[in-house]
């Protein structure tokens, strides 16, 4: 479903701030793969997701989604294939617009915007039903401005919106990191449900090793702009946090074993 071939990205080339954030990353995801991504701060996880989403062009390499080469497509054109949830709860929704308007925008992802109504009555009923699944009481607040919602509510809504039109690929960038533990668990649970229901091909970045192990059928760990570990199948099912740290040390030859990673 996703085929990333040897992509590179260097920020601020030729300056003192030069930083190679992606150093030849290749990754192939099969249909329905749910891949968790871990790695220390600055390892290049967000950069990988942004490269796939087309936030900026990569320096070299190629990216295709569902057989379509999207390497040269701008962000808004790739949106046709991709649903996204960001780390910052403010990023994924339009605060000054209503809940139902946000959902209507998401329902039209990847389609030409015309002079047809921005939202119809049938849609409203449909959205109300969908919001009930979240169990956050949002179904009674369809016309509330999204800016009035809590971070967790916004994040759950963004998740729902990302999956409203079944995406070929779902990209989640630490989408529970800004939430309190209880809300984070709730959003993560909703994520699992939505991904399972539609068999969504998913890349989910997390700082929580346990989450990375529990969720998904495959786990990759990034280190200095490369994929340092790639664990799937039975191997992944048996994985423990201690295992993971040991294997990370072996793979990178570093025993920094990331205290931050361990703690979070």
């Amino acid at each position: 479903m996703l085929d990333v071939q040897n992509i590179r990205k260097t920020f601020n080339p030729g300056t003192v701030n030069e930083k190679t954030a992606l150093d030849g990353v290749s990754l192939t995801l099969n249909d329905g793969d749910f891949v968790t991504v871990i790695g220390g701060n600055g390892a290049g996880k967000s950069t990988l997701l942004n490269a796939v989403a087309g936030v900026w062009p990569v320096d070299s390499g190629s990216i295709s989604i569902g057989g379509t080469n999207v390497t040269k497509l701008p962000e808004h054109k790739r949106a046709k294939f991709i649903g996204r949830v960001f780390q910052d709860p403010m990023m994924g929704t339009a605060a000054t617009m209503q809940i139902e308007e946000n959902m209507a925008l998401a329902a039209r992802r990847g389609r030409a915007r015309t002079l047809r109504p921005g939202i119809t009555r049938d849609e409203r009923d449909h959205y109300r039903e969908m919001l009930k699944i979240l169990d956050l009481g949002l179904e009674d607040r369809l016309t509330s401005k999204v800016g009035l919602l809590s971070g967790g509510q916004r994040q759950a809504l963004t998740l729902l919106m990302a999956a409203l039109r079944k995406p070929d690929l779902l990209l989640l960038d630490e989408h529970t990191a800004a939430l309190d533990p209880k809300t984070a668990a709730k959003v993560l649970e909703a994520t699992e449900r939505i991904v399972q229901k539609d068999h969504l091909t998913t890349l989910m970045i997390t700082h929580n090793m346990r989450d990375a192990i529990v969720h998904g059928n495959r786990l990759i760990m990034m280190y200095e702009g490369k994929i340092a570990l790639d664990i799937s199948g039975e191997d992944k099912k048996r994985l423990t946090v201690e295992d993971l740290l040991a294997r990370f040390g072996q793979a990178t030859g570093s025993d920094e074993a990331d205290d931050k990673l361990l703690l979070s």
């Binding site: 989403a53 701008p74 962000e75 808004h76 054109k77 949106a79 046709k80 991709i82 996204r84 960001f86 403010m90 990023m91 994924g92 929704t93 339009a94 605060a95 000054t96 617009m97 308007e101 946000n102 209507a104 925008l105 998401a106 039209r108 992802r109 990847g110 389609r111 915007r113 015309t114 002079l115 047809r116 109504p117 921005g118 939202i119 919106m161």
Partner: peptide, 25 residues
């Protein structure tokens, strides 16, 4: 109130979100 008009409002409200929803900001 149309799809096109809504895409303008989304662009002004949150361009990141708009692009992620396939709007050419």
């Amino acid at each position: 109130g149309t799809e096109l008009g809504a895409s303008l409002r989304a662009t002004g409200s949150n361009p990141n979100m708009a692009r992620a929803q396939g709007i050419d900001t």
